[in-house]
């Protein structure tokens, strides 16, 4: 018999290393003699989209196009340490360092422009297409390149360091501020359980993710789909089967992960609620997107067949046995 059930899972996630561990990102911003803007930071592109979304931050600040940003990343010879690509921290931590460095460089460019163009402190300036322009009087303008040609070596180069707020939690009382910021999410699924075989299909899925500010919605959707599929594997398929310290499921014949045929179409909802301490409000979502999915699936199983599964992955054998036990 086929039985249908619905379940939800909700979660919050603390960004970064947390619990008092120093969580630091560095970035260097500079204008070269050709007027080109370079930002360098040791953040690694591992497929999460750091290269794309982080470069959008200085572009926004300096009024240039993202593709004009020369972003030097991950090369330890040329970049400053920005910590690991872990703990969903790069958007927030390195994003903040890059924002700070770009803003400092912008201030330097502004003051150089005022000096060269003989402008008072009050005159409002705008940045557009590698130029600093007096707002309302566009005849007064100077390009980054012109500024660079009058500046001394090293003048148009600035390093900023961002350190996340984290304190050690009091283990006795549970008090403290171990993480900042937090990210929130929810998942809802509908499953159809075959009570004769113990197999189940996810017939509907919805994933809701708070992102602070969506720097790049397409990348976020990609991470949400990926997080869901990974969690689906975690809940239903993936088992290292460690026996006496030895991994028995050491290949893809035994360690199963979802294929394109297992993957379900997930309805994705991105919630934007800008985080005040984050770069343009944006928070990382690498890990958060995976967290609420397995609980939602387990709750849906309970709703469908009335059994509480407490061990994952929920293989057909396990589910069938549990169904038989409750009769």
């Amino acid at each position: 018999m086929k039985k249908t059930g619905k379940g939800i899972g909700i979660m919050f996630y603390g960004t970064g290393y947390g619990n008092g561990y120093p969580d630091i990102s560095r970035a260097k911003a500079k204008i070269d003699t050709d007027g080109r803007f370079t930002i360098s930071s040791g953040a690694c592109e591992v497929g999460q989209g750091a290269k794309t979304s982080l470069a959008q931050i200085p572009a926004e600040i300096l009024g240039i196009l993202t593709k004009e940003v020369i972003f030097d990343h991950e090369d330890t010879k040329t970049t400053l340490d920005a910590g690991t690509c872990a703990a969903s921290r790069q958007t927030y931590n390195t994003g903040n360092a890059m924002k700070m460095a770009s803003e400092s460089l912008k201030r330097i460019l502004e003051s150089k422009a005022r000096e060269i163009l003989n402008l008072s402190e009050e005159e409002p300036l705008v940045f557009d297409n590698h130029e600093v322009i007096v707002e309302g009087d566009p005849s007064k303008r100077i390009s980054f390149k012109q500024i660079a040609n009058t500046a001394d070596v090293g003048d148009l180069e600035v390093v900023e360091i961002f350190q996340a707020v984290t304190t050690k939690m009091n283990e006795e009382t549970g008090e403290g501020n171990p993480y900042w910021p937090y990210t929130f999410g929810a998942c809802g699924v509908e499953v159809v359980v075959d009570t004769e075989t113990g197999t189940l299909d996810i017939s509907k899925a919805i994933l809701v993710q708070d992102v602070g500010r969506a720097v790049n919605p397409k990348l976020i959707e990609g991470q949400m789909d990926g997080g869901f599929a990974m969690a689906q594997g975690y809940a239903l398929l993936e088992d290292l089967n460690i026996v006496k310290g030895e991994i028995k499921h050491h290949n893809f014949t035994k360690y199963l992960i979802p294929t394109a045929l297992d993957a379900v179409e997930v309805k994705k909802i991105i919630v934007e609620d800008p985080e005040s301490s984050a770069p343009f409000g944006a928070k990382g979502i690498g890990e958060p997107v995976m967290i609420p999915v397995a609980p939602a699936i387990l709750n849906a199983i309970y709703d469908a067949v009335g059994v509480r599964i407490t061990e994952i992955p929920v293989t057909p054998e396990k589910l069938l046995k549990a169904i038989k036990e409750v009769g």
Binding site: P258, A260, L261, V266
Partner: peptide, 20 residues
């Protein structure tokens, strides 16, 4: 048919949706 066509290729990151 696309899902079946690429089902012999595993992807850990994308959840296949954008690939399809």
């Amino acid at each position: 048919e696309i899902r079946r066509g690429i089902s012999g290729n595993l992807c850990r990151c994308t959840g296949y949706e954008k690939i399809v």
